[in-house]
Write a protein that binds this DNA or RNA. Sequence first.
DNA 1: ACCTGAACACCGTTCAAGT
DNA 2: ACCTGAACACCGTTCAAGT
Lengths: 244, 244
Amino acid sequence: MATRTRRTERREEPLSRERIIGAAIELLDRAGESGLTFRALAERLATGPGAIYWHVTGKDELLSAATDAVVADTLAAAGAAASTPADTADATPQEAIRALALGVFDAIDDHPWVGPQLARTSWKSPMLRVMEHLGRQVQALGIPIAAQFASASALMYYILGASNQNAANTAGAPALQPGAANRTEFLATVSAVWAKLDPDEYPFIRTVADQLPGHDDRAEFLTGIDLILAGITTSAATPSSTPH
Amino acid sequence: MATRTRRTERREEPLSRERIIGAAIELLDRAGESGLTFRALAERLATGPGAIYWHVTGKDELLSAATDAVVADTLAAAGAAASTPADTADATPQEAIRALALGVFDAIDDHPWVGPQLARTSWKSPMLRVMEHLGRQVQALGIPIAAQFASASALMYYILGASNQNAANTAGAPALQPGAANRTEFLATVSAVWAKLDPDEYPFIRTVADQLPGHDDRAEFLTGIDLILAGITTSAATPSSTPH
DNA sequence: ACCTGAACACCGTTCAAGT
DNA sequence: ACCTGAACACCGTTCAAGT
């Protein structure tokens, strides 16, 4: 987790890139991407808007740095949890991948602005870091080299997309943020809307509508991970099984 | 494909929601998300900024409508191509899913702003439409009901994430947009950067770096689709194979 | 009913001026 | 070297006024 700083900054400590990024993360967590403003940031840091530009080139770099910080924290925590003997003796690659995936899932749930930011930043350092960790476990699974990149990519994109969707759903009920109660309420609402869709246009969505309310988001997320893991291992066993 | 309108609008035809959305898509395609401005839009439509608000509630709705239009066009085209006897006699569900996936992939390649927009919009109509089409094919595969949603979701998120990444890569070389030559050049540059990463921090990325330049993006994308399809079918054959 | 365009309250960013 | 804060060039959105 990113370091929590006090609401009102003590002005004695000088401005620094680190403090700016920390304050930016706080603003983003509380008010979303539109909440990050150089003026709001300056007020929070008890300085002027221009001062920030001495430590940071602009808003883009600030957003990247904030995203990078969150992801780095997440991977450090997930990596430690997976490889420390304190957890489970020696984790299988599958277990390590699940732990990694859940780490990203929870991080994006805590910081909903991170998802869109990751998707936007092409192959910059945060995505690279996640890919690196996933790729090592894919290698540990014994997947042939030629299929490793595709395997890690499939996991990566699923993790990013599902986490993003989940975070967007959570933000969908704008009243209270962390309440688990109103999230299930939100899902019930969505389910009701789906059930009323045009049967000719949305037959599949309708049949699936009543499964929605009971879902545990994290469990459902892991189901998808397992599904892709199954695809990775069986595809490696019988290479190029399906022609295109 | 969305209807191309002339650069300078003939001012005889009255303003309409449809014309506004068309002009918005043109602006987005040419200049990206930041290029869509009510002032630029007004100039293009030979009117004032305020006029647009009579047909559209605001920028958010305009962006949603533009995204919806692109996705609707794409699905209409992909659906027709997959189900028409003119193409191949009767397509298997796998082939239909690949066609659908490629349709979205190409659409996001043509309209890079669509990807982030789709990811942002939770379970609104464009995503729902894609899910519906994917879900029908998943049903056609004979997947049990309980696993259908997870299967369609995995496909959906992979498609969205991979298409997005590809579009971001294409936009990464800002000089010429459609040139296939400089995209491979871009990948060569990325590969070179990856090869020089710290061996202790990025062992996996380094081993994978030299595979990057030769890749056909669309083929690589389909490899991932096939991998997930393999997971879907084998998971259905042996339910809950991997515990969590 | 539909359009105009000035005006309002914001932005990110710059930069002369201070310490 | 680091900070200040006014100023610039933009935004999305509103709204009285026109036709």
